[in-house]
Amino acid sequence: MALRLDVALKDMSLRAPAPLFERQPQPRGVFTSQRGFMLALGLVSVLVIAVLPFLDASLYTMSIATSALIYIMLCMGLNVVVGYAGLLDLGYIAFFAVGAYVSGIFTTVLGWPMWAALPATVLACIIAGVIIGAPTLRLRSDYLAIVTLGFGEIIRITANNLEITGGPSGIHGIPSWDFGGWSFNDGFNLFGIEFPERVVFYYFVAAVVIVVGVIGAGRLAKGKLGRAWKAVRDDEDAAEAMGINTYIAKISAYIIGAVWAGMAGQLMATHLSAISPNSFQFLYSALILMAVVLGGMGSTPGVIIGALFVSLAPELLRDFAEWRYLIFGVLLVVVMLFRPAGLWPATAVLPWLKRNRPTPPAFTDSISSVEASVMESVDGVPHADVHEGDRS
């Protein structure tokens, strides 16, 4: 009997096995899928950003909102380094300073327009990322954190002692963005609606943050490079054993994070029109890292929430005067106690989706399908004979 079965299987033509069950279509609704809900939430956030100037276009509101958007882009860059690649960087503010100072020097000393200084800013951040990252990324954990902290302080002290950076006084009179004969300082009139300079720059920053910061970082995380970063973050030795060049993966994350921070620094320099070494102290590196950890490392919506919390909470508590930083610290401790993985972790699943688990088909159906396919392959051998032969 076994011989007849072997002959029958030997003469069969090879073909891909047909699926035993039909795969259920993936839900795409707003409240029935994680992807649909996140897409709807992103569209609502973009709508809120677009409508905000029509609700309150005061100088204070636009200034705070613009600073919050710049914080979001800065945190998205650090999320690439810490959240995706798992590199603890305590001197990330150094790249923020490089972008701000390079754009300030090129626009005030050399007289370049701000848009022409952007490639120089990106190139300077790439060079800074290679100089700082090449010797330090061979270290791990606490050693890497201490070395990056030292480089952050080196950049600040260097800017404090160079004449071209203005020394302790910094650089003042940084111009706004201008294209041809039109500048952001001029604003514009559209359909009878006046858009002043602060509103135009707010929209410009929002567009840069949404397109470059949020969408760019999200697409990188889902690609081949992003998967390599996450493998290095989870277990560097295992990732290297699987053929991933861990050093290239880490330094690429470091350089991309540096470029993100440099562009945010250029936006901040234009927004404030003046920079000084006191604006790039270690406290700001700690706040940015706190925003990433607080929101959820590796989570795009979590990092956005963390950046908004860190940037807006002190302003919302301004009525409490000298108590506001104490309240801010207490809120941070409470959040970390009750949400240790972050406000929106990367592995978060919407609560109502946890209850809608798909029901798998019955196990007996799969067994009967397999038996039927085997019986069809054995020509002329009844079902009972096969079992009799197996028992014999």
Rank of each mutant, 00 (worst) to 15 (best):
D235E: 13
F328A: 09
L287D: 12
L69Q: 05
V349N: 06
V209I: 08
V46C: 09
A8L: 12
S368W: 11
P168E: 11
H172G: 15
V370W: 14
G296D: 00
T32W: 02
V46H: 04
V80M: 12
F320N: 12
S33T: 07
R233P: 02
S169V: 10
I72G: 00
L312Y: 03
S377M: 06
S311L: 04
E194G: 10
G86W: 01
E240Y: 10
L52K: 09
V209Y: 01
R23E: 14
G216P: 02
L69F: 10
S13K: 15
I327M: 11
P168K: 06
N160H: 12
W260E: 07
R198Y: 08
V51R: 07
N79L: 03
M242A: 12
I105P: 01
C75Y: 00
A253V: 06
V214D: 01
V200H: 05
V48N: 11
L316S: 11
Y143H: 12
K250T: 02
M268R: 08
W344D: 01
V46Q: 06
I127D: 07
P17G: 09
A286C: 14
R357I: 12
P358C: 10
F151N: 11
T148F: 00
I154N: 05
D11A: 15
I275R: 01
P314H: 02
P53I: 03
Y60E: 12
A261I: 04
G306A: 05
I157D: 14
A124P: 04
T246V: 11
S45N: 12
A238M: 13
A239H: 01
A241K: 05
A65M: 08
P175K: 10
V48G: 06
K10P: 09
V44F: 08
A117V: 03
R324G: 04
R28E: 11
A313D: 03
P340N: 02
K354Q: 13
S369D: 14
E153C: 05
M297K: 09
Y325T: 14
R391E: 11
A207F: 14
D89E: 06
L190W: 13
R138L: 03
W112P: 06
A307N: 02
M375R: 15
A221C: 10
N185P: 10
E240N: 13
V259R: 02
F54R: 13
G342V: 01
R219V: 15
Y247V: 08
L332I: 11
L20A: 15
L317Q: 09
V98C: 09
Q281C: 10
F280T: 03
Y60W: 05
M38W: 13
V205M: 05
F282I: 07
G298L: 00
L144V: 06
A274L: 14
I70M: 04
Y254N: 03
G218C: 09
R391V: 12
P135Y: 04
S252W: 05
P277G: 10
L337Q: 06
D319R: 14
W177H: 11
V30K: 04
A68E: 09
L5F: 10
T61N: 11
G226P: 01
V334D: 03
F328I: 06
T66K: 06
S299F: 01
E153T: 02
P314D: 08
S176P: 01
R357E: 13
E153V: 06
K354W: 06
L267F: 07
G86N: 01
M76S: 08
A372R: 12
I126L: 05
